[in-house]
């Protein structure tokens, strides 16, 4: 397993953001995590990266139990370039004062690779995300949102990570850029990189992921192959989620069905 998360709990003061989430990603697999506002999806990504501490549970990344690492051990582990992260906001995920070349090469430079070597890798990666080498000398402000997000993906890939975490990578993009980034993710998946694709949008995850996990109020309430989860959801929340997705041809569920699912979830929520 490239990633195994077992009974992960994260608390921020009183807020219980994750309440025992379990999840795994096999080598070369793409797992989608679906969660809406307040489900704990960003917390999940940040916990796996060690950016927030876990209050309970275990996280194993590529055979290393990272749950108890101290700062120094974390740094050494991160420098191996096993995991990389792509953020939601393409506006702020690149340093506005650094050229694309210095942003792209940064992960390699941190590992101590020479600039010349890192720069030639950067050129390769730009090509891989279908961007021209002329962008290397530009600043992020001179790029469109879609280009910036592809640069962010390229930066994540430059260390050839085993696992890439993507937190809402396409939510801030317009539809044509969204499609381009999703196509890029498919290429990555087909090239054998494991992806953990976190999003609120079932549709964009379904197009890329092999398996999907549904995160609701800090718990994974359902997981399985994409087709099964979408066509035969078992948890009421998943049913509501699938039944709410706007579709063109056939209504996924009718109003009455959704109303009763909402009533069911509310009554459950009232107990907790």
């Amino acid at each position: 397993m490239v990633l195994r998360v077992d009974g992960l709990e994260v608390r921020y003061g009183k807020l219980h953001a994750l309440r025992g989430a379990s999840l795994s990603v096999a080598p070369g697999e793409t797992v989608g995590v679906i969660g809406e506002t307040g489900s704990g999806k960003s917390t999940l990504a940040r916990a796996v990266l060690g950016l927030v501490p876990a209050s309970a549970g275990q996280i194993v990344v590529d055979g290393t139990d990272v749950t108890g690492l101290n700062t120094r051990q974390w740094r050494a582990f991160r420098r191996r370039g096993v995991v990389q992260y792509v953020f939601q906001d393409p506006l702020r995920s690149l340093d506005p004062d650094l050229t694309i070349a210095s942003s792209l090469t940064e992960p390699l430079r941190i590992q101590g690779v020479s600039f010349a070597e890192a720069a030639s890798r950067a050129r390769e990666l730009l090509k891989r995300v279908s961007l021209g080498p002329e962008l290397l000398d530009r600043l992020p402000g001179e790029l469109s949102g879609g280009q910036r997000q592809r640069v962010a993906v390229a930066r994540a890939l430059i260390v050839e990570p085993r696992l890439v975490l993507l937190d809402e990578p396409v939510s801030a993009l317009d539809s044509s850029n969204r499609v381009r980034v999703l196509e890029l993710l498919k290429q990555l998946r087909d090239a054998g990189t494991s992806l953990l694709f976190i999003s609120h949008d079932l549709g964009s995850v379904a197009g890329v992921a092999d398996r999907v996990a549904v995160l609701y109020r800090g718990e994974i309430v359902e997981q399985g192959p994409v087709r099964d989860v979408i066509s035969r959801p078992t948890h009421p929340y998943t049913k509501l989620l699938v039944g709410s997705a706007p579709t063109l041809r056939s209504a996924a569920a009718d109003r009455a069905a959704r109303a009763s699912l909402r009533a069911l979830l509310t009554s459950e929520g009232a107990v907790s």
Partner: peptide
């Protein structure tokens, strides 16, 4: 900011973050 987190996720030290960003 996310770009500093990205650097940290790549294993940057505090010194690196201060110098570079």
């Amino acid at each position: 900011s996310p770009y500093v987190e990205a650097a940290i996720v790549s294993g940057a030290t505090i010194g690196w973050v201060v110098r570079k960003h």
